[in-house]
């Protein structure tokens, strides 16, 4: 057997999958983001994707901010700690850790839930039933999830950023003995609007990735319970990898001068 055959087959399969995801993305945008809009569905998805993810994102941000403060303190000298800790916690959280960790946590929670729900609807013929009831499945199922994820994820991460900085502040002032007023002033001095907005732009892209991967794998689920399980795993894994890749590309684009 030609040793290059499996490699060639894998590359072709990957390219075919990229093609299918691209076509799905096109349909999701062309059909899902054009009138008619299902307002009730959009609000329900905003509640499920945004509000219900708040505890997970908030706790992740809080502990990350606290841990970051401890690590920076360990790595700095007594003279520089009071400046470095609030500065790096604020920049690290708003630019990188808030969006990426928030995105990954939501990918795990929401991406899995979308894939499982749509996958079950696929294998039980509920998506076919939508078609027979003159309802466009992209408009009814994909559009609301896409809109909800892109709109709510930046809000969610903005709240997470605030909680993360607060985590650093609590650790810095309560455990590391830093001055409360000086910590807040240093944070305010170093943190610029650009740091926050660039992080939020990233998060909107992550929202798109999470919704598309969840919907794509759910829509193409087959083979009963095992197929739904596979779709759920694939949705989370693919969304997580794409979030990390997109983060690298967007960081390069937004922060490299």
């Amino acid at each position: 057997m030609n040793p290059f055959q499996p490699i060639g087959r894998a590359v072709l399969a990957l390219l075919a999958e990229i093609g299918r995801v691209s076509l799905f993305l096109k349909d999701a945008i062309v059909q899902g983001l054009t009138p008619t809009f299902y307002g009730r569905q959009i609000l329900e998805q905003m509640w499920r994707i945004g509000y219900n993810s708040l505890p997970v994102v908030g706790l992740t941000a809080f502990f990350t901010g606290g841990a970051l403060a401890l690590q920076i303190y360990q790595g700095s000298t007594p003279g520089t700690a009071s400046t470095l800790v609030p500065n790096i916690v604020a920049l690290g959280i708003t630019r990188e850790l808030g969006p990426v960790l928030g995105g990954l946590m939501v990918a795990g929670r929401v991406g899995a839930s979308i894939a499982a729900e749509l996958g079950t609807m696929r294998v039980t013929e509920q998506i076919d039933a939508l078609v027979t009831l003159s309802t466009n499945a992209f408009k009814y199922l994909v559009g609301p999830r896409l809109i909800a994820a892109v709109v709510t994820l930046p809000i969610l991460v903005a709240i997470g950023d605030t909680i993360g900085i607060m985590g650093g502040y609590i650790v810095g002032t309560r455990s590391l003995g830093m001055n409360s007023y000086a910590y807040i002033k240093t944070t305010a001095d170093f943190l610029h609007l650009d740091d926050v907005t660039s992080g939020l732009i990233k998060t909107a892209v992550f929202g798109l990735i999470i919704a598309i991967m969840g919907c794509y794998h759910g829509f193409n689920s087959k083979g009963g319970a095992q197929g739904v399980g596979r779709a759920t795993t694939n949705a989370v894994v693919s969304a997580s990898i794409l979030i990390l890749a997109a983060n690298f590309a967007l960081t390069n684009l937004l922060f490299t001068e």
Partner: peptide, 29 residues
């Protein structure tokens, strides 16, 4: 498609909405 009705093998009812909304789904949406 609005000229058709279909009864699916497993019924294919939408489990997130009540029975009346399932029946009225095609009329509302």
């Amino acid at each position: 498609l609005s000229r058709f009705g279909m009864l699916f093998q497993g019924s294919a009812l939408f489990d997130s909405i009540p029975v009346w909304e399932n029946v009225a789904f095609g009329l509302i949406q």
